[in-house]
């Protein structure tokens, strides 16, 4: 048996008649990069929202480190070490970059219900926030307002915020979306670096990036799992070719 960190069991999410996620049982291995592929509307973001607690499943179970977390709230999910980044940039725009990561880093306190000493004295929190910014190449922008950053930099800040809480498992929803090629390369490098110590679950449309970093791939179609396997397996799978990659090839050539 492989070392699974996160596992879903017959997980489903229905919106009215739409089965956004349908009977999905996937096991995510520790310290591996597991990418989720699929055409638009396949239910990838819904899956991430279920895993992060932002949506409650219609049926099925989620287990993290053997513990059931199916009905965890987002804050509880984050506290046990599951961090996430958003497809649509979701930052505190009027804060500086450091302040953005500060809020995340402050989760290292058992509680932030502290009323007396200034937060700025918390050296450990500052160090963790700065470390998160540094790993995303934003050290120089530390004191700039997030709203003044370029789109690509805001995407990097999105990842830095996720890292600032020190998560064990990362849920990344299209981290490369809208980035220039140079920024993309930097972030792919960062993902590789992160994968050394953490587990990554990644949604991404950039195939080159996915094939470069992923250990395992799952292809989803209409909310269901079509196939799971290594990069080689998925690349050569006729079903996947037909359902997803095939379309792509035909339209591009």
């Amino acid at each position: 048996m492989t070392d699974s960190i996160l596992r879903t069991e017959r997980l489903s999410k229905h919106f009215g008649g739409l089965r956004a996620v349908d009977n999905l049982s996937i096991s995510f291995e520790r310290r591996k990069v597991h990418a989720i592929l699929g055409p638009n509307g396949a239910g990838k973001t819904t899956l991430i929202n279920l895993l992060s607690g932002e949506l409650q499943p219609s049926s099925g179970h989620i287990y993290y480190e053997g513990q059931e977390i199916t009905n965890h709230t987002p804050e509880k999910t984050a506290r046990i070490g599951i961090g996430r980044s958003y497809q649509k940039t979701n930052i505190f725009t009027q804060f500086t970059c450091l302040q953005n990561c500060w809020i995340g880093a402050q989760t290292m306190l058992r509680t932030s219900m502290r009323f007396f000493l200034p937060a700025s004295r918390l050296r450990q929190v500052r160090m963790q926030a700065e470390k998160a910014l540094e790993s995303c190449g934003l050290t120089e922008k530390m004191n700039h307002a997030a709203s003044s950053l370029s789109y690509g930099e805001q995407r990097q800040l999105e990842i830095a915020m996720m890292l600032s809480t020190g998560p064990e498992l990362l849920l990344l929803d299209e981290p490369l979306a809208g980035m220039g090629s140079e920024e993309s390369t930097a972030v792919v490098g960062l993902l590789r670096e992160l994968a050394k110590e953490r587990t990554l679950i990644l949604i991404e449309h950039d195939m080159d990036a996915v094939f470069a970093v992923a250990d395992t791939l799952t292809v989803m179609v209409n909310g269901a799992e079509l196939e799971t396997g290594s990069v080689e397996q998925i690349r050569s799978s006729p079903e996947v070719q037909d359902a997803y990659l095939g379309h792509r090839d035909r339209t591009e050539r």
Binding site: I91, F95, T107, S112, M113, F115
Partner: peptide, 23 residues
């Protein structure tokens, strides 16, 4: 100025994100 105040201001800015960070 205390850690509590930082979280309040963040809640005003984007409550959903503060929850997602673990509060």
């Amino acid at each position: 100025r205390a850690p509590f105040g930082y979280i309040l201001v963040a809640i005003k800015a984007n409550e959903q994100r503060v929850r997602a960070l673990g509060y």
